[in-house]
Structures are given as structure tokens and as C-alpha cells.
Amino acid sequence: MIASRPWLPTPVLSLLLLFVWLLLVRSTAFGQIVLGGALAIAIPLLTHRFWDARPHIRKPLLLLRFALRVLKDIVVANFEVAYLIANPWRKLRPHFIEYPLMVEDRFTITLLASTISLTPGTVSANLRMDGKSLLIHALDVDDEETLIQHIRQRYEQPLKEIYEC
């Protein structure tokens, strides 16, 4: 891993910014590389103090498995939502659910909320001010407790293990 330096707090982000700059201007002229490099160094320097500390990934292989699980769930949920919408005789049961959180780390909560929103049919609507629960809207809910356990086992528990929260 590349060590962070005071003049280059996030080297990977700086490289990404340079690459995006060159794509935006559609040129690899020397002047554009210099300007993009200056922006790639200046932007992280000016903004890094506003960022939260990056969490340490304890189990990278579990993170890979989690990402593959989420991708699979997105594909499956797309077909399920398409089926629900294509069948007008099927009555939907939309529902708001108060999901009690086991994790307390803001980064992990953000990942969980994003994962829930990425899977079609569910949306993270709100994080309570105390940070203890998420308000989730689901398109079709049979049993509230079953959905809570599904989210806890498939998403929250692996995130808790990956980042050891």
C-alpha cells in the first residue's frame, strides 16, 4: 500500500482525478497533464481535513464475497421488481420499516444504507438522528420481521465482520 504523505494525502484519489481530468479535456497535451496534476494534488490537500478517517478492511476476501452477493441480489431484485410491475393483478404491499442497526460506525451505516438502496424494491429513506435505526421503504413486504432478518444476515452482519465494528 502506498503510504500517505502530507503533500499527497490520497495518492490513489489524485491519480483518479488526473485521469478523469484528462478524459474530460480529451487531451494528453503536456499543459493538460500539468494542469490536471496540479488539480489532482490541490483538491485532496484542500479537502482531506473534512473527510472521515478511512476504515480498515479486516477481511478483504469477505468484502469481495459481499460485493458479489450484492451484485447477484441486484440482478435478482431487478427481475422480481419487473415481475411485480408487469403483473397488474398482483396487489403490491408497500411498507415503511424501522430497521434497528447493530453497527454504529458512520461509514458502515452508509455502506449498509447504500446497499439497501441499490437493490431494486428497497430504499433507505432516513437515518434517525440517534443513529440507531434506518427507515426503509420496501415495495412488497409479506412480513416485516422476515425482511429485517434478511437484511441483517445478508448485508449488515458481513459488513460488521469486514470492518469489525
Score class of each variant (00 low, 15 high):
9 P>I: 15
3 A>L: 12
138 A>C: 08
56 H>W: 11
116 I>E: 08
129 M>P: 00
4 S>N: 12
147 L>A: 04
3 A>M: 09
82 A>S: 14
48 H>Y: 14
146 T>A: 15
61 L>S: 10
89 W>G: 00
129 M>Y: 03
88 P>G: 03
35 L>W: 13
132 K>H: 13
20 V>K: 01
52 D>R: 14
145 E>I: 00
159 L>E: 11
122 T>M: 11
29 A>D: 14
149 Q>R: 15
155 Y>E: 07
99 Y>E: 05
73 D>G: 04
125 A>R: 02
60 P>H: 09
24 L>E: 02
138 A>H: 04
65 R>W: 04
61 L>N: 01
121 G>D: 01
68 L>G: 04
153 Q>M: 09
116 I>N: 04
56 H>D: 07
97 I>H: 10
151 I>A: 02
60 P>N: 09
159 L>V: 12
78 N>C: 13
77 A>N: 13
18 L>C: 12
3 A>S: 12
37 G>N: 12
61 L>W: 15
54 R>Q: 10
66 F>V: 03
134 L>Q: 02
12 V>T: 13
115 T>K: 07
107 F>T: 09
46 L>H: 04
82 A>L: 15
91 K>T: 12
97 I>Q: 06
1 M>R: 07
122 T>W: 09
91 K>V: 10
1 M>S: 11
114 S>P: 01
23 L>N: 10
97 I>A: 07
119 T>K: 10
151 I>Q: 06
141 V>N: 03
23 L>E: 03
52 D>K: 12
9 P>S: 13
90 R>I: 11
142 D>G: 08
157 Q>D: 11
157 Q>V: 13
40 A>H: 10
89 W>Q: 09
135 L>R: 08
39 L>E: 07
73 D>A: 13
8 L>T: 05
112 L>D: 01
139 L>Q: 03
57 I>V: 15
107 F>R: 00
37 G>D: 13
5 R>C: 06
98 E>S: 14
163 Y>I: 06
151 I>E: 04
78 N>W: 14
59 K>E: 15
93 R>M: 01
152 R>S: 06
16 L>S: 09
64 L>V: 15
163 Y>S: 03
134 L>R: 03
88 P>F: 06
92 L>N: 01
103 V>Y: 08
162 I>W: 08
113 A>F: 03
98 E>Y: 09
68 L>N: 02
86 A>W: 10
53 A>W: 00
92 L>P: 03
44 P>S: 05
44 P>Y: 09
68 L>S: 04
8 L>Y: 08
6 P>R: 13
108 T>D: 00
